[in-house]
C-alpha cells in the first residue's frame, strides 16, 4: 500500500476484507443447504443489517477513495456493486413491504397464476397455488397453450418447449400480445410473467410465474458498470500502459 494513503482508507480496506471474508464464509455454509433455506437465511433480519452495512461501506469507500485514488475504473466497479446491492434490497420481499409502508406502492413481489385455455385471470396465488396473494392491475388471457416435442412420443423428457400465447387485457381492451416461452417472459406494467408449469395431462391450462420488476433495473445497471469496470481495470488499463 502506498505510504501516503491515509488512515481512514486503511480502515475502509480492513473492513472490506472482513466483509468479503464473512460473506464468503456465509456463502459456503449456505451452499450445504437447500436453496429455499439459504434464501430465507440471506433475507433474514440479521443479514438485512449486513447488506445495509455493506451498502454503506461501499458508499463510504466511494467517497473516501474518490478523494485520494482517482482511478475511474475502480470507482465504476464499486458504484456497480453498490447498485447491485441496493437494487436487490429494493426488489426483496422486505423492500416491497417498505415501499408499501413508506410510498404506498403496493406490488406483489412474487406469485403464480393458473389460467385455463380461453379464459382471463388477474388473481395471483402462492407457490402451492392455494393462497391468494393479491390481484394484478390487468388481466391475462390465455389464447392458446401447447407443447412442442423432440420426438413423436409425447413424454415429459422429450419436451422441446412450452408455449403460452397470451393477451394483456386492461379495462376490457386488449393492450398487448405475447408468446410466453421458457427464457422469453412477458414484461408488462411493472411485472414479468414467466412460463412456469402446465397441465401435463391434457394441456388445458398454463401456470405462469409473476414477479415484480422493482429494483431490477438498478441491479442490471450495476451489472453493466461492474462488468465494464473490471475489464477496464484488469485488461485494458495494463494494455494501454504497456503501449505507452
Amino acid at each position: 500500500m502506498p505510504d501516503n494513503t491515509n488512515k481512514i482508507n486503511r480502515y475502509i480496506l480492513w473492513t472490506t476484507l472482513v466483509a468479503i471474508g464473512l460473506l464468503a464464509i456465509l456463502s459456503i455454509s449456505a451452499a450445504f443447504w437447500p436453496a429455499d433455506r439459504a434464501k430465507q437465511f440471506f433475507n433474514s433480519t440479521a443479514l438485512a443489517i449486513f447488506w445495509y452495512a455493506l451498502a454503506v461501506l461501499l458508499l463510504v469507500a466511494l467517497v473516501g477513495f474518490s478523494l485520494s485514488n482517482r482511478k475511474t475504473s475502480v470507482l465504476i466497479i464499486h458504484t456497480g456493486l453498490f447498485l447491485v446491492i441496493a437494487g436487490s434490497m429494493w426488489s426483496s420481499q422486505a423492500g416491497h413491504q417498505l415501499a408499501e409502508q413508506l410510498l404506498g406502492i403496493k406490488k406483489i413481489p412474487i406469485g403464480y397464476m393458473i389460467i385455463p385455455q380461453n379464459q382471463s385471470q388477474n388473481h395471483v396465488l402462492s407457490k402451492n397455488l392455494t393462497q391468494q396473494m393479491g390481484e394484478l392491475p390487468f388481466n391475462i388471457k390465455l389464447k392458446n397453450f401447447h407443447c412442442q416435442y423432440y420426438q413423436t412420443e409425447k413424454d415429459s423428457a422429450s419436451v422441446r418447449n412450452y408455449i403460452s400465447e397470451v393477451a394483456v387485457i386492461r379495462n376490457g381492451k386488449e393492450v398487448a400480445n405475447k408468446t410466453i416461452k421458457v427464457n422469453y417472459p412477458l414484461h408488462y406494467g411493472g411485472y414479468h410473467l414467466y412460463q412456469h408449469s402446465y397441465d401435463s395431462e391434457e394441456e388445458k391450462f398454463t401456470i405462469l410465474m409473476v414477479t415484480s420488476d422493482s429494483g431490477l433495473y438498478a441491479v442490471y445497471t450495476g451489472y453493466w458498470l461492474l462488468c465494464m469496470g473490471v475489464f477496464w481495470q484488469f485488461w485494458f488499463r495494463p494494455l494501454l500502459k504497456n503501449k505507452a
Binding site: G21, A24, A30, F32, A35, S88, I110
Partner: peptide, 27 residues
C-alpha cells in the same frame, strides 16, 4: 437465471459456491 427461472439470484448451492470463489479473488 432472471429470464429462465424468474429471479436473478436463487441462492442454490452452485450459485453460492461460484459467489464464494468470486469473493476469494476479490479478497
Amino acid at each position: 437465471a432472471k429470464l429462465a427461472w424468474g429471479d436473478y439470484w436463487g441462492w442454490d448451492p452452485k450459485e453460492l459456491w461460484s459467489l464464494a470463489s468470486w469473493l476469494i479473488y476479490a479478497g
